[in-house]
Simulated assay, not measured.
Amino acid sequence: MTAFSDLPIRDDLRGLTPYGAPQVHVPIQLNVNENTHGIPEDVARDVVESVAAAVLGMNRYPDREFTELRESLAGYLAADVAPERTGSTQTITAEQVWAANGSNEILQQILQAFGGPGRSVLGFPPTYSMHSIIAAGTGTRWIAGERGDDYALTPGIVTDWIERTEPDLVFLCAPNNPTGTPLGLDVIEAAYAASRGMVVVDEAYAEFMPDDAPRATTLLPGRERLIVSRTMSKAFAFAGARLGYLAADPAVADALRLVRLPYHLSALTQAAAVAALRHAPEMLAMVDDIRSQRDRMLRELPALGYSAHDSWANFVLFGGVRDPRAVFEALLGEGIIIRDIGIPNHLRVTAGTEAETSAFLDALAALGASQSEPVDRILG
């Protein structure tokens, strides 16, 4: 059988591996940060009815500008900058919003428009693995910056890396994946001030942040090179629908129109997303439960001998694992899959339902202390 490396593939892609989250069907799947809560029945019914209506017009191309969807997303994002939250009269308009098939396509279009051969993007590993993979796919040079203690970023760290490397784009993750690390607005402001290129803040897990934590969207006025990327895959439990979006200066959407494929968002995707956004409060009602299960793991994992890193996302990175692969396989044998993300002595687990979280913690406890290193050895 021919390997793809035997084909005349681009030289800069040789030796790379594709995104590889395991796809294993087991009863408890806590490995890819999905929202494991089901979609409420009345919301599902509205989505189905909306998609069915769109099917009747499938002989025509969809709205290329996905106008209704952009208006719905702008209405949803308006809560980020509402006067009662920010004290300002700032708003977000449909002209500032762009959408695509998942936030990965959003990031790809950004790099197609502002990156490419001869250009570079600065990121700060460990971070979302698709950042560097999409960079490679678009021929954009990936620069791996470094984080501080406990994976934190500070204004000084990002400013130093930007001044030394002069990237065309900067990718920041708020909160960061896979560490859950919060990112202060002061870090974003510092990155923007130091950079002459585009600054992209990946806020895929924004809804799991504390309610009073300001979002990066509040920094958009006067910053035409700032892009805030979001997704409906996580808090909205819409991973299978594939809908990502961004907020930025309207000129950014104009730039992305140059690289997007014609009619890139299907009529079915648009209809489903608009229907889900009509039920935003109901869809997000499960967020508090997810955060409570995340915080529960932050409390209980140390009691089992592991070190849990603070998280503002819907997952927890925990250290002190003597043999991550052995723990991963042992849990898999119990019908539970979590994620080995390649950080030595660490594993990552998604916050699921109360029952799923209990099953994970009970199974981990049953493995015994032989699977964990002393916490003070990991932290000190």
Rank of each mutant, 00 (worst) to 15 (best):
M1D: 09
D6R: 04
L7T: 10
P8G: 06
L13K: 02
L13M: 11
G15Y: 02
T17E: 12
T17F: 09
G20I: 01
V24N: 03
H25M: 11
P27C: 07
Q29V: 15
V32T: 08
N33H: 09
E34C: 09
T36E: 02
H37W: 12
H37G: 09
G38Q: 04
V43F: 05
V48I: 12
V48W: 11
E49V: 09
S50I: 00
A52W: 01
L56H: 10
Y61K: 10
P62V: 08
T67P: 08
L69K: 05
L73C: 08
G75T: 13
A79C: 12
A82F: 02
A82L: 07
P83M: 05
E84C: 15
T89A: 11
E95G: 08
V97M: 04
W98T: 07
E105F: 04
I106A: 14
L107A: 06
L107I: 10
L111K: 01
P117N: 03
P125E: 03
S129N: 08
S132N: 05
I134T: 12
A136C: 12
I143H: 02
G145A: 03
R147G: 07
T159A: 09
W161R: 15
W161D: 10
E163T: 11
E163M: 07
T165H: 14
F171L: 15
A174I: 01
P175V: 01
N176M: 08
N176C: 12
N177M: 06
N177R: 00
P178M: 00
G180I: 00
G180P: 04
P182I: 03
L185H: 05
D186Q: 06
V187T: 04
S195F: 00
R196P: 07
M198D: 05
V200C: 13
V200A: 09
E203V: 05
E203L: 03
E203S: 13
E203P: 11
Y205S: 05
A206D: 09
F208I: 12
F208C: 07
D211E: 15
T217L: 05
T217C: 09
P221T: 04
E224G: 07
R230M: 10
M232S: 13
K234T: 11
A235N: 08
A241V: 12
L243T: 14
L243K: 05
A248F: 03
D249G: 06
V252Y: 00
L256H: 10
R257G: 12
L258F: 06
Y263C: 15
S266Q: 02
Q270L: 14
L284G: 15
I290Y: 01
S292M: 07
R296P: 10
R296M: 11
M297E: 02
R299E: 15
P302H: 00
A303G: 10
A308W: 01
A308M: 02
D310R: 06
W312T: 10
D323C: 13
A326M: 05
F328W: 14
L331R: 00
G333H: 01
G333Y: 00
E334P: 09
G335M: 00
I337T: 11
I337V: 14
R339G: 07
D340F: 08
I343F: 02
H346W: 02
T353N: 12
E354Q: 14
E354H: 14
L361A: 12
L361I: 15
L367Q: 13
E373P: 04
L379A: 11
